[in-house]
């Protein structure tokens, strides 16, 4: 399904491409295909995959089915960081460096990391370590990141920087090109690979800290390492696309509902669903209206009802 969506994504958009023109060697078609469509599809597929994997890590490590990069404030932290990158990176006069790494990416990562550290520090106030505390801590961090974002927007140049920041907040794969994705996607896939290698440890962290420790797990260090990897993944994606909601929350649940376990294959399936959701949402974003719509509208339309379903299912279990 992901392959079908990916192929479809290569040919859908403002500038219509056809296989016949590509085979005929039409230079303009090839340029659009290689610089815009391929990179956009790669971010849709791999970015969605990474968000799905990151969601699996967050939910398992926090032992909370509602934990996701969005809910614990990582995405909004990354967005605030990216906005700072747009403002101060421009001031530094550097936009793109080695492998396409940009100040925006670096600031987005720093923002996301800061959010995780803050959310974890706040959740430690509750010594009982209740699952709900991390969600509440995330809401607080999310609000704080939004406040920072508002302050940054107030200082932004309304004609240039503010537009870029707004574009970020809406979340879109529009504007992604082959020059900007290489570094982010390489780093993102390295993190994904590392998370797969550490899958067994992720599962061990799903237990209470004392129980995990008695199975030989150094829970504190391992949790920090995994959250760093997951945060880096999310940062790599959102630094290119802006805020994308619900992908990390919904797709791990879909995978678990189908497999009824949490094996590496389930985590992989969650990633595949993530890739499908983001690619499908991106196809809709550029095809349902005359102007391109933000991709988060469609990930939200699919994700929000599923979140409600999870809440209802949770209540029925009680």
């Amino acid at each position: 399904m992901l392959v079908v969506l990916a192929v479809f994504s290569l040919f859908v958009g403002k500038y219509p491409l056809s296989m016949r023109e590509l085979l005929a060697g039409n230079e303009l078609h090839w340029r659009v295909f290689l610089t815009l469509r391929v990179s956009r599809t790669v971010v849709g597929v791999l970015g969605g995959f990474a968000l799905g994997i990151a969601g699996f890590v967050f939910q398992t490590v926090f032992r909370n089915p509602l934990a996701s990069p969005d809910i614990i404030g990582v995405s909004s932290g990354a967005s605030a960081g990216a906005a700072a990158g747009i403002l101060f990176g421009a001031g530094l006069g550097i936009t793109t460096g080695w492998l396409g790494f940009s100040w925006v990416t670096a600031f987005a990562f720093a923002g996301a990391l800061l959010s995780v550290i803050l959310a974890m520090a706040l959740s430690m106030i509750d010594r009982n370590g209740r699952n709900s505390t991390i969600v509440l801590a995330g809401i607080a961090v999310h609000s704080l990141a939004q406040t920072v974002l508002m302050c940054l927007k107030l200082t932004a140049d309304p004609e240039k920087e503010l537009a870029s920041i707004e574009y970020w907040i809406m979340g879109s794969l529009n504007g992604i090109n082959s020059h900007s994705i290489l570094g982010n996607m390489i780093l993102c896939m390295i993190c994904v690979g590392a998370v797969f290698l550490l899958h067994r440890q992720i599962i061990l962290l799903s237990m209470e800290e004392g129980e995990a420790r008695m199975l030989g797990v150094n829970a504190g260090k391992l949790r920090l390492l995994l959250l760093l990897l997951a945060t880096l993944m999310v940062s790599c994606v959102v630094s290119l696309s802006g805020l994308i909601s619900f992908v990390g929350l919904v797709t791990p649940h879909l995978a678990r509902m189908l497999t009824k376990n949490s094996r590496a294959s389930t985590m992989f399936l969650g990633g595949i669903f993530g890739g499908c959701l983001l690619t499908f949402s991106d196809i809709l974003a550029r095809s349902v209206a005359k102007t391109e719509l933000p991709v988060s509208i469609f990930t939200g339309i699919i994700g929000a009802p599923f979140l409600i379903y999870l809440i209802v299912r949770g209540r029925q279990k009680i």
Binding site: R63, I203, M207, E208, G210, E211, N261, R263
Partner: peptide, 30 residues
């Protein structure tokens, strides 16, 4: 260290904190 201790001692709590979907075999293999 946690690993050295786990090689010597094992512990069964009153209730295990496993809250995710996981197969019985995977729990035992922990």
């Amino acid at each position: 260290s946690a690993k050295e201790l786990a090689r010597l001692c094992s512990y069964i709590p009153q209730r295990s904190g496993i809250s995710i979907d996981i197969s019985v075999l995977d729990v035992v293999l922990m």
